[in-house]
Every structure is written in C-alpha cells, then in structure tokens.
Simulated scan of single mutants.
Amino acid sequence: MAFSGDIPLFVALAVLAGVVVTLLLRPLRATGARTDIGESEVALYRDQLAEIGRDVDRGVIGEAEAEAARIEVSRRLLAADDARQRAVRENSAANPRWRKGMAVAIALGVPLVALAVYLQSGSPGLPDRPLAPRLAVSADQLPVEALVIRIERRLKAQPDDLRGWELIAPTYLRLGRYDDAAGAWTRAMILDGATAERLAARGEARVLAADGRVTGGAKADFEKAEALDPAEPRAQYFLGLADYDEGRSDAALVRWKAMLADAPEDAAWAPAVRARIKAIEGKTAKE
C-alpha cells in the first residue's frame, strides 16, 4: 500500500486515536476530575440565576415565570454543590494499582488495534469530501440537518440576524429540538420585540418540550399573545387545552368553538380542533 499524499490523513487518525484514548482513560483517573466538573456546574447554575434576572429586566419573561425558574435552578445548584463536595471527599482516596495497569494497556492497545484494522479494511486513497463545499450548494438541495448547520454558522457569525432566528426556530421545532426552538424565538423577541405570533410559537415549543403539558411559562406566553391578538389561533387552542387540563371542559369548548366560528374556510388547524371538540363532547355524553 502506498502512503504518499496520505500524511494528513494519518496525522488526523493519530489525533483521533489520542482523543479516544483520553476519553477511555477518564473513568480510570482519580476523582479530582469530578471535582473540577462539579465546580463548573456550580458556576453554570449561578450564571443561570443571573441570566434570569437579566431576562426579567429586559421584559422577556414575567416575574412569576422567573421565580419558578429560580427555584428550579437553585435546586440544581444545591444538588451540584452536594455532588462537588462528595467528589472532594472521594478525591482523598488512594488510586488503586489496577487503574494504572489498565490505563497503560488502553493507551497502547487502542491505537495499535485501530491502525491494524484500518490498514486491513480501510480506504485511505479515497478523496475526501469536505463539509464546507457540501454546504455551499443552494438551500433547496440541502437536507434539513445540513440547512440547520448552515444557518447556525451564520447566526454564530451574525447573532443579530433576526431573519436567521425566525427561520431556524420552526426548523428546530420540526426536528424535535423544542428547547432550541423556544430559545430561538426568545432571541428573535430580544432583537425585534414580542409579537403575538412569536409568543405563541415560543409557547408551543415549551408545550412540546413538556410532553404536551401547558406549563406556567407556556401559558404566560399564550396569554400575552392573546392580549396582543385575540385571534391568534395557537394561543386560543393551547389556552383551551390549559382549561381542559385544569378541569374546565366547558370553557375549553367555548373557546374552541369561537375559534372555528371565526376561522377561514381553508384553516389547516380547523379539522384538529373539530376532532378535539367531538372527542370531549362524546366523553361528556357518556358520563
């Protein structure tokens, strides 16, 4: 096998093998690493508490939602601090001898085995396919995942690109990345203010992230959206769902029937709302 021209490839493979070995050795290291991780988590949760305060000052979230977020982050902060203290105590224990022997075996064995397998079965002579040229094609030729990567790169370089945030938020939603979708809508509102559509879209992402439950934060978004535009369909639908979940079926039916009365003939969401009304009325009739 000729190796001319393959030096960069083998350098990359060597680096990759080093990364793999490092990851494999991490569990065998003394628990001092866990102490560092615990301190990082504590610092992260403290930063999150400060960020909640800044969000309240900017008017992105309400005080009730902020208080709920503070309670949750504080709970995680206490848990992280307890874990950090346990790691500090464990760090004083002696490192067993078998760890060192296992570490040496892994450090030498993994790269050698990987190299042998690659030389036997690999194809180092094939041309590479760099990511950048593959992403440089027109947007309609890209799969959704690649399109997201392109937009994320642009937003990293241009974080004030409102159109980019509004484009990527519904894409995140379709991919099931609900928390990312909610964050993208929040960013859009920071840049250009809250609208009924943006608030309702963020509320929907929060509902999906909570497995269909209308959480306090989501309900606050829908109520704000309704105040800005009483005809906003997502806000009306999910507020009706909140009524139903809280045992107010009659209120939910009134809200949804009012939606249908004012709906355009071609409203895509109308069949789903009719099905929901029919199911609830059928259940009520049986009772």
Rank of each mutant, 00 (worst) to 15 (best):
I151V: 02
R154A: 14
I149R: 15
L135A: 03
D161V: 03
R129V: 13
A132H: 01
G164F: 03
P133R: 01
D140V: 05
E166I: 03
L155S: 01
A139E: 15
V144Q: 11
P133G: 00
A132T: 04
A146L: 15
K156W: 10
D140E: 09
R134A: 08
V144M: 15
D160C: 09
E166T: 07
L142K: 06
P133N: 04
E166V: 01
Q158M: 14
A157I: 05
A136Y: 00
R153C: 07
E166N: 08
A157D: 15
P133C: 05
V144L: 14
R154F: 06
E152T: 14
W165I: 02
G164Y: 05
V137N: 00
E152N: 09
L131G: 03
L162S: 05
P133D: 05
L162I: 05
L155G: 04
Q158F: 14
L162G: 00
A146Y: 12
R153D: 11
K156H: 12
Q141F: 08
L142S: 10
L135E: 01
S138H: 11
K156P: 08
L162Y: 08
I151W: 02
S138T: 11
R153G: 15
L147Q: 11
W165N: 04
D161I: 00
R129T: 13
P130T: 04
V137Y: 00
E145N: 08
W165L: 04
R134S: 08
Q158G: 11
Q141D: 11
G164M: 06
E152C: 04
A139N: 15
D160F: 10
E145A: 15
A136L: 01
R163E: 14
V137T: 08
P143T: 03
R163L: 11
K156Y: 14
L162Q: 08
R163D: 13
W165Y: 02
L131Q: 11
P133K: 00
P130Y: 02
A132M: 10
Q158L: 14
R154W: 07
E145W: 08
V148T: 10
V137K: 05
D140W: 06
A132L: 09
R153S: 15
R129M: 13
V137I: 08
I149M: 15
W165M: 05
A139D: 15
E166P: 03
I151K: 00
I149H: 12
V137H: 01
D140G: 02
